[in-house]
């Protein structure tokens, strides 16, 4: 177990190193000169040149990368061109809001998806099953900004159940989380339905019934734990999907997280912020997957980590 963890952490570091190289190369791929952007429009060529010198932009590329990497290791993600603030400060300030939103999204997609899938499987081929599967199909295919605006219109504007936007209270969290979770709920309800149908056919379910167990116990004690095994592995991947999801959702609801920060940075070509957020996202995805892999053996005793 300790050896497994150590090996996975070494792998994680290697992956992040790879990501840092790719994000670093971003700097050279965008057709914008950082020095000119920092200096502003009215700057003289001499000022631009001195900024270039100061940023080390005239050094060979491997030396620039080395400077970037050693700064990273000190927790320095660079400085925003336009906001004149450290990127790490900006990201840290906004990360909690985004993590909260993601947690809400995961809860929504799991609760919605698993319930829908379970009910659909137990009422297989009924009207209810068909209705739920159409709903899940809509959830999978509807673009998130449409879902977001629709939910806002119905539940905030028309019914006035939830506030239109903002950050801070539980009721403000509901609609953004729901928007973020709808896509995953669509996928999970389908996965859960087919996993349940598969599990309900298994011999051990027949054994459980032959023992004289009550129906609910057969379903929740014997069938559901087996059916959710493949879904647990997916939650790690969700973190990556959410990273792109929050950019849209935070913009729709004015949620002060890193999604909004990214969106603004993209619009203004504020490269250091984009680089920083990309790196943080990569960290989140790697950690999410590691966590999912560590949780798996707790649910399925057949999985051994070595």
């Amino acid at each position: 177990m300790a050896a497994y963890l150590l090996r996975r952490l070494i792998q994680a570091v290697l992956i992040l190193l790879g990501v840092s190289i790719v994000t670093f190369l971003l700097l050279f791929l965008v057709p914008a000169d950082p020095a000119r952007q920092i200096a502003g429009r009215s700057a003289t060529p001499a000022m631009v040149e001195s900024i270039r010198e100061q940023l080390g932009l005239n050094l060979p590329i491997y030396q620039q990368y080395w400077r970037y990497l050693s700064a990273l290791l000190h927790g320095d993600l660079g400085r925003s061109y336009l906001q004149r603030t450290d990127v790490s400060t900006l990201v840290w300030a906004r990360l909690p809001a985004s993590l909260l939103l993601m947690a809400g999204g995961i809860v929504c997609e799991l609760v919605l998806g698993l319930t829908m899938g379970l009910v659909a499987a137990l009422r297989r081929n009924s009207r209810l099953d068909q209705g739920l599967m159409i709903a899940s199909f809509v959830g999978v295919s509807a673009p998130q900004f449409v879902v977001g605006i629709l939910l806002l219109y119905v539940f905030a504007v028309k019914l006035n159940w939830f506030p239109i936007g903002g950050y801070g209270s539980f009721s403000q969290l509901v609609l953004p989380s729901l928007t973020l979770g709808v896509l995953g709920a669509g996928w999970y309800s389908r996965m859960m339905r087919s996993a349940m149908l598969d599990v309900l056919r298994q011999d051990y379910i027949r054994t459980a019934r032959a023992k004289g167990l009550a129906r609910l116990r057969v379903i929740f004690r014997h069938a559901v734990p087996n059916a959710i095994l493949p879904i647990v592995a997916m939650i790690g991947i969700d973190v990556g999907i959410f990273m792109s999801g929050i950019v849209v959702v935070e913009s729709v609801y004015g949620w002060p997280g890193i999604g909004q920060l990214t969106w603004q940075a993209i619009q203004r070509v504020d490269i250091p912020i984009i680089m920083g957020v990309t790196l943080i996202s990569a960290c989140a995805i790697v950690l999410g997957n590691l966590l999912a892999d560590l949780i798996a053996p707790m649910i399925d005793p057949r999985i051994k980590l070595r």
Binding site: D203, Y204, R206, T207, A210, N226, I299, D300, P301, R302
Partner: peptide, 12 residues
């Protein structure tokens, strides 16, 4: 039943 390998629940 016939199949002892699959007749017991693997996660319990």
């Amino acid at each position: 039943f016939q199949e002892p390998m699959t007749s017991l629940n693997p996660v319990l």
